[in-house]
Design a protein around this nucleic acid. Sequence first.
DNA 1: CATGAATGAGTTTTCATTCAT
DNA 2: AATGAATGAAAACTCATTCAT
Lengths: 192, 192, 192, 192
Amino acid sequence: MSPRSKAQFEEIRDQSREKIMAAALQLFGTNGYEATTINQIAREAGYSKGLLYNYFDSKEDLLKELIDSLKEGEHDMMDKVVDDDPGVMLENIIRFTFKELSDKMELWKLITSLAIQVERFSFVHELAVNKLNTYLTIFEDLLSRIGVPNAKAEAQMLLAMFDGLGMQKLFVKTDYQLDDFEEFLIDKYCRR
Amino acid sequence: MSPRSKAQFEEIRDQSREKIMAAALQLFGTNGYEATTINQIAREAGYSKGLLYNYFDSKEDLLKELIDSLKEGEHDMMDKVVDDDPGVMLENIIRFTFKELSDKMELWKLITSLAIQVERFSFVHELAVNKLNTYLTIFEDLLSRIGVPNAKAEAQMLLAMFDGLGMQKLFVKTDYQLDDFEEFLIDKYCRR
Amino acid sequence: MSPRSKAQFEEIRDQSREKIMAAALQLFGTNGYEATTINQIAREAGYSKGLLYNYFDSKEDLLKELIDSLKEGEHDMMDKVVDDDPGVMLENIIRFTFKELSDKMELWKLITSLAIQVERFSFVHELAVNKLNTYLTIFEDLLSRIGVPNAKAEAQMLLAMFDGLGMQKLFVKTDYQLDDFEEFLIDKYCRR
Amino acid sequence: MSPRSKAQFEEIRDQSREKIMAAALQLFGTNGYEATTINQIAREAGYSKGLLYNYFDSKEDLLKELIDSLKEGEHDMMDKVVDDDPGVMLENIIRFTFKELSDKMELWKLITSLAIQVERFSFVHELAVNKLNTYLTIFEDLLSRIGVPNAKAEAQMLLAMFDGLGMQKLFVKTDYQLDDFEEFLIDKYCRR
DNA sequence: CATGAATGAGTTTTCATTCAT
DNA sequence: AATGAATGAAAACTCATTCAT
């Protein structure tokens, strides 16, 4: 009889937002941003078209909030992988990255397809460039401390390889096994 | 006022087709297939909207013909790089690939963004997977003949790295210098 | 925890209704009926969207009740201005009308904008026509009794002028001073 | 066989634009801007919805162009009514205005209903205020030259009356005869 | 071969209205 | 009595495609 409390509304809102954003990530990643309709997202999330506009100003706003929410997830990583021993830290990063390649494929797809469109989605593009430079610096530092010669070039190579693996995994889809390759890499770069 | 000869017509047709396809490649690559309008392509090519339908059945048909024309360009490569010495052949491939990364960026963008959409553009997707497997085999063969240990894993790594470099080049755009890196790679893999 | 008495409920209802109708009048008048959303009215009144439907069946019903409430205010006027002396009565009407032009601008705006849409809001339109004819008759009677020649035409002129003044006041907004003009009119028509 | 010439296209465009603007004026005036749909305008003009967007960026852009086109028509008037004799000139203005009240009712409706919404359509509002002030000055000058006492107040009255007549004509619609009243006004103000 | 006006299906967006709490 | 999440019909707008010239 009495109306829902503010906390209850808050919870409902959060849940619905989550569902919608999850559906959007899934569909944007699979079919691309432009090819995905608001209707599809709503149906996938189990709601009606109109509700999306209670939570997001527009389709593009939904995309932006999606990207923003990803930036936050980014910070978690560094906490988990940091280590005094550069070999251990690089191993952590490699294992973490391979795990993300499996778990967050849709996300990866989405960012890639958007970042390619430099003009249209500059906010994604900047995100990608920043991330690239950050990792380049970290990798170079770790590799030189590990004692790998030509640390800069090797860092570039390693990073390019991660991006490339991600892309190949997208293309080849489910049956793309990387477990052995993961161990090969760790052996090659982290154990000295 | 004499009527144009058949050959002249043919030539006009070919030129117009070329212009349209070049414009389409440029725009599809930069803004994505879905976000590019027929009008934009026509204007970029210097023609009117309607003319496009004299040469292509539909927007998707234009895309398909574009992709087809690329497959043809593909065959040229093998002729140029093949060599009895595996080290020389790998060097040729590396140099050729780096050259393509510079010269055919738009094409690379387009294929990437389309291949990501596995369902929507299966014909592009298949193309990408085929190419991936072909190169994997070639690289593994060359590396093992060169005497690189773990040839299979290294082949996978090399290939992933090329894809990754391509993507990074797209993100970072013009000021991404790879000359030194090219030499580093050739030194590392081809000279034994 | 004692339940509210019926009278208390009644009072709350009346207050809420009043607030909602005041907010609706304000917004309908300023932005127009179509351009005003239920949400805006609710927020302006300090309530939630849903509550409006406890008091009014629909947006159009709210409008109708608003107009109806105005008709009632109308009856008060005649009591206040009636006088045996036609000059005094006309002066009363003029003074009363000028006062209304200041005090009830929003209402005036609303009726005008609605009455213009003859088809869509016929109930407002009829109201406006009735009022027009009523005043025309009264003015003609008063002016002829005062001894003004051409009483019919002058009545029409006077009435048109009132409507026109109202509209001008709307356009020019706050800094439109009519005090001197009011005295001018009274001098011209009521003092003989 | 040969394509249409530029001039031919120009003509087609102009005709279509005209038809659309005429339909829009008619419908905006009758039903209001907000209550009129793009579909209605298109159907009334004899075209499809989509064509409107070949000529106008948006519904509001269509409105703006409509209003702009009216400003132009405005200039014509002054040329027609100007006269050295103030009595004749005032008579010209009165006759012209009454004619416009008959011929351009829809336009009058539209401007009135838009000007009322001061905030929403400021470009119309400014137009209305400017026009008001211009005429006020002209009327005051003419009346004082004719020798009417209290020229300023009488000018205000005359102008208010025109606006009021316009509005009344809208309300009462077709059967509102003003011919006698026109002569009455001319007799009263222009013949001295 | 070439043009761009015209179409309409499909998409994004808005908003009155309902309803569980 | 009161809340605001959820719905869906209807509106604005886009754009591939057709077609008369």
